Computed example of a mutant assay.
Amino acid sequence: MGSERVAVVTAAGRGIGEACARRLTEDGYTPVLFSKSGAAVDVAEDLGGVGFEGSVTDPADLEALVDAAVERYGRVDAVVNNTGHPPTGDLLDIGDDEWHDALDLVLLNVVRTARLVTPVMREQGGGSLVNISTFSAFEPSADFPVSSILRAALGSFTKLYADRHAADGIRMNAVLPGYADSYEVDDETRAQIPMGRPAATEEIADAVAYLASPNASYVTGQNIRVDGGLTRSV
């Protein structure tokens, strides 16, 4: 196994994923980045890592990503499972194909990546996975029905995986962002946020970097809200 720390970040070509890649690089990780658009290749080149084009919904692409990281660097210390947004619409108007596609996008991508990196992390003595979820995972929103439902399932997977692999020194947590400045936020939505503004993507990345780091060595199986006070439950 190599000695440098390596971080794999998906959907890293822009927004939260790019911010996470940049923050982890500042912390000393070598970035291995991935995006459907191919923009992650440019980000990785800028950061001194390596980038790939592919889809988190394609098991073969995920396997090629992890294989490339291991072949090039010999290890994977951190994984940030970030994705795009599943479809929206009225609850019963969303078609079966959209539900199945979203399952691949926001849940099975994490399951598949975990299958790939867990043996690597176990062999090297540990690692950390951070899943980018949503504020509505535990307070379902009719505006984001597919995301709310499937990311609630992601929270359960996060906890079960964390318990199963804690003794291996492998941690898994989830970050639940509210609205971020990588997308347009209208005045009505802004008024719902107690802090009165969307998050900067760098603020989400700071939480991810903490969970990936040794500073969070006793934190696992948690769903951390970074939403400016948007959700109401305690």
Rank of each mutant, 00 (worst) to 15 (best):
A212M: 00
D58I: 05
L116I: 02
T83L: 05
H85D: 11
T83K: 09
I193R: 08
T57C: 13
I149V: 15
A153W: 02
S148K: 07
E53P: 05
D187S: 15
D42E: 15
L92H: 13
I193S: 14
M121L: 04
M195V: 14
P214W: 00
F144R: 08
Y29E: 01
A142P: 11
E18T: 00
A205N: 00
A68G: 10
R197V: 08
G13V: 06
E18D: 03
L108T: 10
G49W: 00
D58T: 06
A64F: 07
V70I: 04
A167Y: 07
S182L: 02
H85I: 12
I193C: 04
A174H: 10
M1F: 15
G54L: 01
Y161P: 07
N173L: 04
D206Y: 00
G127S: 09
D168G: 07
I16D: 02
A153G: 13
G51Y: 12
R75H: 09
E63Y: 06
R112G: 13
A142T: 09
G228Q: 05
R197F: 05
G38A: 12
Y29S: 03
V79Q: 05
A191P: 03
D58G: 02
S133F: 08
P194T: 03
A19Y: 01
L33P: 08
G48R: 07
F135T: 14
K36L: 15
Y29Q: 04
R14E: 06
T113V: 13
S3G: 10
I193E: 06
V70P: 04
L105S: 14
V111G: 07
D46P: 06
T189L: 15
G178H: 08
Y210D: 01
R197K: 15
Q192W: 13
G196R: 08
P194C: 05
G126D: 04
E123Y: 01
R171D: 00
L47N: 03
A137N: 14
G2R: 14
A162W: 07
G95M: 12
L65H: 02
S141D: 13
D90R: 12
R22E: 01
G54W: 02
D46F: 08
L160E: 15
S182C: 13
Y29W: 02
L103M: 15
L116S: 01
D42W: 02
R171Q: 04
S213Y: 02
T118Q: 12
V234D: 13
R122E: 15
V76T: 07
D227F: 12
P198R: 01
G15W: 02
L150I: 08
T118E: 10
M195L: 11
L211S: 01
L160N: 12
S148F: 09
D168S: 10
Y161Q: 08
V43T: 10
V234T: 13
A152L: 07
V9W: 05
Y29R: 02
I170G: 09
H165D: 11
G95F: 10
E45D: 13
D181T: 09
R5G: 07
Y179D: 08
T10A: 03
S136D: 10
A12S: 15
V120Q: 05
V8Q: 07
V8Y: 06
S37D: 11
V219C: 03
W99L: 12
R197S: 11
R151V: 07
Y218K: 00
A174I: 10
P86T: 03
L154I: 05
V76N: 05
V9R: 03
G169E: 04
E4N: 13
I204W: 01
